[in-house]
Amino acid sequence: MAQKTIRQALHEALAQEMRRDPRVVVIGEDVAGGAGTGGGRDAAGGVLGVTKGLITEFGEDRVIDTPITESAIMGMAAGSAVSGLRPVAELMFSDFLGVCFDQIYNQAAKFRYMFGGKARTPLVIRTMIGAGRSAAAQHSQSPYGIFTSVPGLKVVIPSNAYDAKGLLIQAIRDDDPVIFCEHKLMYDLKTEVPDEAYTVPFGEANIVRDGDDVTIVAFARMVHYAAAAAETLAREGIDCELIDPRTTSPLDADTILDSVARTGRLVVVDEATPRCSMAADIAALVAEHAFGVLKAPIRRVTAPHTPVPFAPGLEKLYIPDSDRIAAVVREAQGYAR
């Protein structure tokens, strides 16, 4: 089976679904990649090259290049979704959610509920998250916790190319609005990805690694840091079970609780800020439902409650890394009442 990057996996998912279903359209800034510029039509394929080739194959009616107006993109996407299309809209940086949040939060997320289940909103919003490129405070955030807090939205955070393709196809076939978060430093990560179309179900976590000592729950890029920490810890005799929820809404609470029932220890690793976050949410879940089995306090490894720093040195300190994760896991494992 071929090794593919997350970028290729996402492209394949889009192209295969557009071939399968004429209702699938792509909307966003620069999705036609270079159209109208000196670079020529389809020169780039979006800022990250994910949509490259789509306008050539599917034309301007299905690959819709928009002005720099997130509110218009999301309004168009929400409206076309309730009226029969299956749009995949791009919110280039998730940090820009503020300028289009009404369309997402108060429109798309509410239609099914307010129209008594008669309206469907099969809308996917692909958006970039994550720090690590010195892109400064306005282009480096991971606000999936905000999206997750909204009933009516589904939220997907893939950490590898296999999941990225299967989850994006699932998102496109889903009848509810889905926020699909792509970490900007992970597009070149490779794994084995089938050529065929396939779906990865929402609400089923991936168990990245089995272990009986400490449960680690991590998202996106943090899955890889946590895996590296778990390798180090295994050599010290601490066996971590690493869980990648893949979707935060719906959340696979069972897999997390089953794991903690065995390990009695939980460390949540999240690149997002800690207040009202996924880390807080999962800590609350376990505290509420598994308090009796806990052998140590629940620990969170997250960014601090500050904007993302621009200075590379500070940004490096801001993002959780394997050493920090390992140190906290050791504390959890060594905790004595």
Binding site: Y162, G166, P194, E196, A197, Y198, T199, V200, I207, D210
Partner: peptide, 14 residues
Amino acid sequence: RTMVEDMLRNKRID
């Protein structure tokens, strides 16, 4: 777990 994952991956293909 990998045997289970392999089965599910086969089954997820369209």
